[in-house]
Simulated scan of single mutants.
Amino acid sequence: MTRRLQYKIQKQHNGKSIGMFLKEKEYSRAVVIELKKTQAGIKRNGTWAGVNEIIKTGDILEICLAEQAYSENIVPKKGRLNILYEDEDILVVNKPYDTPIHPSVNNYDNTLANAISYYYHQQNRPYIFRCINRLDRDTTGVTIIAKNLLSGSILSRRMKEHHLSRIYVAFVEGITEEEGTIDLPIGRMEDSIIKRKVDKKEGKSAVTHYRRLEVFQIEGQAVSVVALQLETGRTHQIRVHMSAIDHPLLGDFLYNENNHMLTRQGLHAAYCAFYHPITGEYMKIAAPLSQDMERLIQQGLNRSQEGYDLENKLLALKW
């Protein structure tokens, strides 16, 4: 894909080098190196320019991010793709369950990466897969994909610095407190490469905040729907923390193997807020519940109408 950007130099940048200006615009060193390799990757007033050139008020700086490569190990394969938002820099989808993010030994062509590669292959556009927030195979919801090297580097850094605000929704056993904070370190289970546990001696710090949204009964068993925000991003953090306070997720075969109300763990990445990596616009993107969660909550709340108003429920929260 090719992304072209144009900047009119303002007074506050007069006398700075192009390299300094790009750094202020959050261009990473890796992005600048690629621009230097690209013919006419950087142009000042229509002429190919180097990063050490000095810019003046009123100059027009043109940037060309040209990528003709593609992710060689990702086979284009049509799949479920629910697009929530798309522009020149980012693609945001509502990831379905039973869908891994990346191909692996046992998941060669059934992943989100395959479906997105197919989507752009149909448009004859070369594409490198850059997923910003990775979800477990059976976790549904908001997943952000960068469409170029610049948006990818900016969002990846913000993700590491916890500058992407995310809210998850979980269906858990029992009636939780109305709200709470779980501050318990998490470490790897000794006899498993996948499973995690609360480990107060050797675990890494993990903090989860939660608010209860709903309570209902299914076949005599109480279920709470909770919204969660994470201060940290440990593997299986929500699943481990909710199990630790005796409210394990429905359908979680790892941490609650006897519950079969859902066929997968009841966890959904419901909402994400962040500043657009290029325009700076503040983005708020919500993903509706998947069909299995929607059916369960309608059954539990004894409602016949379709569409649980999840987005407004989340926006009403005061974290």
Rank of each mutant, 00 (worst) to 15 (best):
K11G: 08
Q12K: 15
H13Q: 05
E26T: 09
R29N: 14
V31D: 13
V32I: 14
L35G: 05
T38Q: 11
I42H: 08
W48K: 15
V51D: 00
V51F: 03
E53I: 11
I54G: 12
I55C: 01
K56Y: 08
T57M: 11
L61A: 08
E62P: 07
Y70S: 15
N73V: 06
K78C: 08
K78R: 14
E88Y: 10
D89H: 15
I90V: 15
D98L: 15
I101N: 06
N106F: 13
Y108H: 06
D109W: 06
N110W: 01
I116H: 07
I128D: 10
F129A: 01
C131E: 08
I132R: 09
E161Y: 10
E161G: 11
V169C: 07
I182F: 12
P185Q: 14
G187A: 11
D191T: 14
K195H: 03
R196F: 06
S205I: 04
E214R: 12
A222N: 11
L228M: 12
Q229R: 06
R239E: 02
H241Q: 05
L249S: 01
D252P: 10
Y255L: 02
Y255V: 06
L262S: 03
L262G: 06
A273R: 13
L289N: 07
Q291N: 11
Q298N: 15
G300V: 06
L301E: 10
D309T: 01
